[in-house]
């Protein structure tokens, strides 16, 4: 449907469109844009809980330089990436496998609808409840799964997951995998199903089958959706908060003052609202600006890597066919 600006009788309707989008933009400006601008401004001050005044007449980079040389802040960024990568890499690889299974026209798989519904289930469950559930299941000598893994002898009797640097990281990565696996499978499967089967027929005539047709037809045609998945997972994954905060409050502690699961979002929250943080709003804001810059840079690199035409862009079957020919 194309925009209708003027109808046959020459009445202008454009103003209604502007009117209809007004509530959105008013609320957007108050509750999203203003807070962002405010946060950026106070990141250049020394504002903390005890002084209310926000004064930009004397901007300072104090917060930014402090963070730049703070091992705890860098550790939080490193933790965020460790947790994201451990969950995202197996997630996307397995999601491709399952998307191929679910979108296959030649496989007669029983209950594939039920599988899809089950795989997506963890994604809708309250993150806070998931965090407490897993923490309780793996609680030292009390949790049902903690007793189970010890019963089967997979870990020693003295193993306390909450005290283990890699135990906590792996568990949180696993939970993230558990929560987003189904979502990624369904997104990729939807995109695979929409690929026109005639491309595969054409490729077959040209002698490209199996592995070749996957890399030269399926993958190139799915580039936009892979990019979408990558960017949303990146933006979401770098903001991970509920799991590390509710389960271990960013712990177990590390010698540099940080914690093994203290992600950047947890760090920001601790600086602003954590106990004993002196409500250092300026520092927390500066950290969130850094986080934003990291997300922007990585999104940009991903865009470049996957090609400019990727987001919401027309597919290019011709190109894929040529590749399949080669």
């Amino acid at each position: 449907m194309k925009g209708t600006n003027v109808n046959r009788r020459g009445v202008s309707y454009g103003k209604y469109g502007a009117l209809f989008i007004t509530p959105f933009f008013v609320i957007f400006m108050i509750f999203q844009l203003y807070p962002i601008v405010y946060s950026i401004i106070i990141s250049f001050t020394t504002f903390s809980g005890f002084q209310i005044k926000v004064d930009l007449s004397d901007p300072t980079f104090e917060q930014y330089t402090f963070l730049w040389s703070s091992p705890r802040f860098w550790q939080s960024i490193l933790n965020t990436f460790i947790i994201w990568l451990i969950n995202f890499i197996p997630q996307i690889v397995l999601a491709f496998v399952f998307a191929a299974i679910f979108s296959s026209v030649s496989l007669k798989l029983r209950g594939s609808k039920a599988f899809k519904i089950i795989y997506y289930l963890p994604n809708i469950i309250t993150a806070a409840s998931v965090a407490v559930l897993f923490e309780t299941l793996f609680e030292y000598r009390q949790g049902v799964l903690d007793t189970a893994i010890k019963f089967f002898g997979w870990v020693g009797d003295d193993f306390n997951i909450a005290r283990s640097i890699w135990g906590t990281r792996l568990l949180i990565s696993f939970i993230q995998f558990w929560r987003y696996f189904g979502y990624t499978v369904l997104t990729l499967a939807a995109s695979m199903i929409s690929i026109n089967p005639s491309y595969y027929e054409a490729a077959k005539i040209d002698g490209a089958t199996g592995v070749k047709s996957f890399f030269h037809i399926t993958l190139p045609l799915m580039r936009p959706i892979v990019l979408y998945t990558l960017i949303t997972s990146l933006v979401g994954g770098l903001q991970i908060f509920e799991m590390p905060y509710l389960m271990y409050e960013g712990g177990p502690g590390l010698p540099n003052g940080g914690g093994a699961t203290e992600t950047t979002a947890v760090y920001i929250y601790q600086m602003a609202f954590g106990t004993g943080s002196a409500n250092n709003y300026a520092l927390a804001s500066a950290a969130s600006v850094y986080l934003f810059i990291i997300i922007l840079v990585l999104s940009y690199i991903t865009f470049r890597f996957f090609g400019k035409e990727a987001f919401g862009i027309e597919r290019k079957p011709k190109k894929a066919k040529e590749k399949a020919n080669a």
Binding site: Y34, I36, I40, V235, Q239, I268, Y281, L291, F292
Partner: peptide, 17 residues
């Protein structure tokens, strides 16, 4: 563009608002 902005960026400002 707002879909790319991390929620944390506005967190302090939202709290103050």
């Amino acid at each position: 563009a707002t879909m790319l902005i991390p929620g944390q960026l506005g967190m302090i400002g939202w709290y103050q608002l």
